[in-house]
Design a protein around this nucleic acid. Structure first.
Lengths: 197, 197, 197, 197
DNA sequence: GACTAAGCGAGACGGTACGTCGCGTCTTTAC
DNA sequence: GTAAAGACGCGACGTACCGTCTCGCTTAGTC
């Protein structure tokens, strides 16, 4: 039934081997040195099996992205009620991640891929901002009044993420105060709360 | 004295022809379809002359960047005394530039090149932020009190530029209010000044 | 069973096109101006297809030689019963061939290739002496007593061929009596038979 | 007077350094891997100095040949009165020389050069046969009646030399009896002289 | 003694071909 | 009918030499 396809069904094992090989080589050699032949060899697969199911190298990377094989689990900002402190902590976490050379290399490849290819660009947008925990935290801040009513949350999130992306692309060096200054630039001067009642 | 170099000196004509060919093909075909053979052919030059003076393809692009052959003249924000309005105008100009498909393609290539190569990344940073008129406008705002004292200007500039870069990479669509919302997210809600005293 | 090779088998069409292009360009441009790129282009073939099956340019030429695409059909000495006259006729034929500029050029290339490359050298030996009709004629002469018993036929053949090869290499000019003198030098003075019984 | 050339005269030191470098690299790398750049570098000379005085690579090699920098001192056949024995000894000496791999390599290069280039070919002819001691020995044999009157000496010499050249080109292996068989093939059966009074 | 050629080492230049890598397609055998 | 294997035409890579052309320096005559 169901349209009666004949012959062997698509091999799930091959599909997974290909995606894993892609992710592994992407992380290791970067986007622009990613080769189909290399992936096929590492996956123990014929090249045709790749070309049969993915039209472009890009589509392959995009599917890895969708499967979450490229990005680390998203950074979740805490919600202590103090927006500035929470965001600063979040930014610190991201900067710490970025400071690791391997992670940085991965991000460079990913951003290069996104800049090169429209599909990956859109997908990265979804992965970064779409369902992220960051927007949740900003919405919560808007609800409690930590953010002035009418503040465009999406744009604020873009500025946060974009500023960090720019640091990655431009290799801006990080120092101890970077996170606090960055958040301060966006939220305005944060009151120094010496303690917490 | 003077180190006495012997042999014919480097040909400035060849250098310029190569850089121009590089810039032209970069804009036309993008970073990842840039070929040394194509550049050499268009410049009317032997490949070896390129390899002799530039170690990598990215070094070539970087020098184009330095010579200002890739980026348009920087966008200069006006200084009417109203920071929000000035920045909104500036962002609108940038978004208008980005919306042009050719410019967008150029920016995608440039960002891919910067993400791929450290040298280009740093150079892009200098080109974007270093001497930019944007930082001048922000300093002026800090002086007049439009920005709260202590606001980290560099980080604010990074957030502005980064947010725009993120839009480019992620192909975020632009609507009429984008610029105003974006600036509003960064500076806080801007008073609606119906006129001007 | 049967060793089961997988993948597409070697293309016989490509092999033949390559060999024909090689032979054609060898005859036209000579051994030292033979280029793989030229052969590939003329054969309508990728360079890699040549490099996959032949390790060196000389192996390619050697295979042409084996296939008989370079040497003319061997010169067959007649067998009239008069060894001196038969050999003289044979030498005259060879000298006439050598005197043609195109043939001479071909022989020069072939000898240069043989001198350069061991494999071609051995192959040329086989092509020249191995199955040649010359040795047959000498054996026949030995059987009829035209050659003294015990004459080393192989060495005699080498001297005949070698003398001619030397003329080719050294561009020795030919005159009317060359053939007769040459054969006379090897067989001893030949009786002048004024008629034919 | 005398046409009064002005400027520095040709540097003999450079000329000699170039010829020596040529001979050295010719012997080491063979004719077809001989490069002008390599010669210039080894001679400590600018390329232009080579191109100024020699039109072709060939002319360079030819001059080396003329200066006797490539060929070993000629082999001189003894004159004991026994032509067969003398020639056999001479052939044995030549075969011994040829059997040494370095000498063989040199001869291969030289023959390749001669086959490739007309000028070198003619020059090789002169060097091999022209003034050689071999022709002297043959003339002596003709005078004493060891060779039948009317035997074409030049052709006989060509057959001797050509047979050896053919062995070099074709890499014919040598055994103990080669020399005797070869001479026997050319001179006819040699009487076995058990002793000599 | 200053001037003027030419020779010279060095090396940049526009080219041609090299031998290799990876592309995306096609063709075969095995399951 | 999918899959592994791998040959194929193709385009670009980065390298080696080609033969030509400046350079700055040295080395003789000639004025």
């Amino acid at each position: 039934m169901m349209g009666g396809r004949r012959g062997a069904p698509r091999s799930e094992a091959a599909r997974i081997a290909i995606l894993e090989a892609t992710a592994s080589r992407f992380a290791e050699h970067g986007y622009e040195h990613l080769t189909i032949e290399g992936i096929a060899a590492q996956a123990g697969v014929g090249k045709q099996t790749i070309y049969r199911w993915w039209k472009t190298k890009t589509a392959l990377v995009a599917e890895c992205l969708l499967e979450g094989m490229l990005l680390p689990g998203s950074f979740i900002p805490p919600d202590t009620g103090d927006l500035g402190r929470d965001l600063t902590g979040w930014v610190e976490g991201v900067l710490r991640f970025i400071d690791d050379p391997d992670s940085a290399e991965l991000m460079h490849s990913l951003l290069a891929a996104a800049a090169t290819d429209e599909q990956i660009g859109r997908m990265l947008r979804d992965a970064l901002a779409g369902d992220s925990a960051l927007s949740t935290r900003l919405e919560s801040a808007a609800a409690t009044g930590d953010l002035a009513p009418g503040t465009p949350l999406r744009e604020l999130g873009d500025a946060l993420v974009g500023g960090l992306v720019l640091r990655v692309i431009c290799r801006t060096p990080t120092d101890m105060g970077s996170a606090a200054r960055f958040v301060g630039a966006l939220l305005g001067p944060q009151p120094h709360r010496s303690g917490k009642p």
